[in-house]
């Protein structure tokens, strides 16, 4: 490919070499290791591990809360990005700067702070109520309502920057004249939003939501401080992975079980990410 005359800048060989080495060392080889460890289990053992009721409940909690948090961030992240780009108000620069805070803050600290701060909000307090209040909705059936809310709020915090930082540059580079032209042609604010701005930020929005979701699925440090961590009711999947890693009886098999839980998380995350990207692809084809 480097010999193709269309390539103006030289150096494809070198840069591709670096890129693939980097990806292999950091992503592909560890992933292969994960698969290898899991393959220590027979198919039946694998199925028993991942269909264990506590594991299933943890999957439900981890994925549903991460998705809900990502969508919440999708809505409010858009509003925040819009406010920051379109309006001038005192303290704007400050607001803009603190959005990245969730990236920098150790999540355990965030979990403790949230626990203290919202300990008085009925739905968010890690309460003294020992009797679980469970969902009756299919899909979330059996999970604790309050813990689900707590985990979702925590994951919303953790995923906050992604949507904002994804769509902010697009809004910033937005050419106001396009909008003015549309207005002069008689388009109202709703039409401008729907026909001009939304299609423009949509791909970035999707990728922001996807990133926030992926981040939420793997979060551990803050959640164990804010959820009640009761098996089958309010445990997240990463905690069950750790339970198995720390199990001293038959450690080889337990670590294989831990990786099995992780592999399923990876596969489901991958499917969700593909679906989100597929949504983007469909909308592009639709417009083309």
């Amino acid at each position: 490919m480097s010999s193709r005359p269309a390539n103006i800048l030289p150096g494809f060989g070198l840069s591709f070499g670096y890129a693939s080495l980097y990806m292999s060392l950091l992503v592909l080889i560890p992933l292969a290791g994960l698969g290898l460890k899991t393959s220590n289990l027979s198919w039946d053992q694998f199925r028993n591990t991942i269909t264990n009721p506590h594991v299933m409940a943890a999957y439900k909690l981890s994925f549903s809360a991460a998705l809900a948090a990502a969508l919440l961030n999708g809505v409010f992240g858009t509003v925040i990005a819009w406010t920051l780009v379109r309006y001038r108000f005192p303290g704007r620069k400050f607001f803009d700067a603190i959005i990245d805070l969730p990236f920098a803050m150790p999540t355990a600290v965030a979990g403790l702070t949230f626990g203290d701060l919202y300990g008085y909000v009925p739905l968010l307090a890690r309460t003294a109520d020992a009797q679980p209040w469970t969902f009756e909705i299919y899909g979330l059936y059996g999970l604790d309502v309050r813990d689900w809310c707590r985990v979702t709020v925590m994951l919303t915090f953790v995923g906050l920057p992604y949507v904002i930082r994804s769509i902010q540059p697009i809004l910033q580079d937005w050419d106001m004249e396009t909008e003015q032209a549309a207005m002069s042609l008689g388009a109202g604010p709703a039409t401008i939003m729907r026909r001009l701005i939304a299609p423009e930020i949509w791909p970035a929005w999707i990728s922001g939501v996807a990133l926030a979701f992926a981040r939420g699925v793997g979060e551990y440090g803050s959640i164990i401080f804010i959820a009640s961590n009761i098996p089958g009711l309010s445990q997240i999947a990463p905690q069950l992975i750790l339970d198995r890693i720390y199990d001293p009886i038959d450690p080889e098999k337990k670590i294989a079980a831990a990786t099995a839980i992780a592999v399923v998380m990876l596969i489901v995350s991958l499917i969700v990410l593909l679906l989100l990207n597929g949504l983007d692809y469909l909308s592009r084809r639709h417009r083309a």
Binding site: R126, T127, A128, A130, I224, S228, N229, I230
Partner: peptide
């Protein structure tokens, strides 16, 4: 354990 509302990961917690 029905009376236990929160299971922390360690004694300090």
């Amino acid at each position: 354990f029905k009376n236990v509302p929160v299971l922390d990961t360690g004694a300090r917690g």
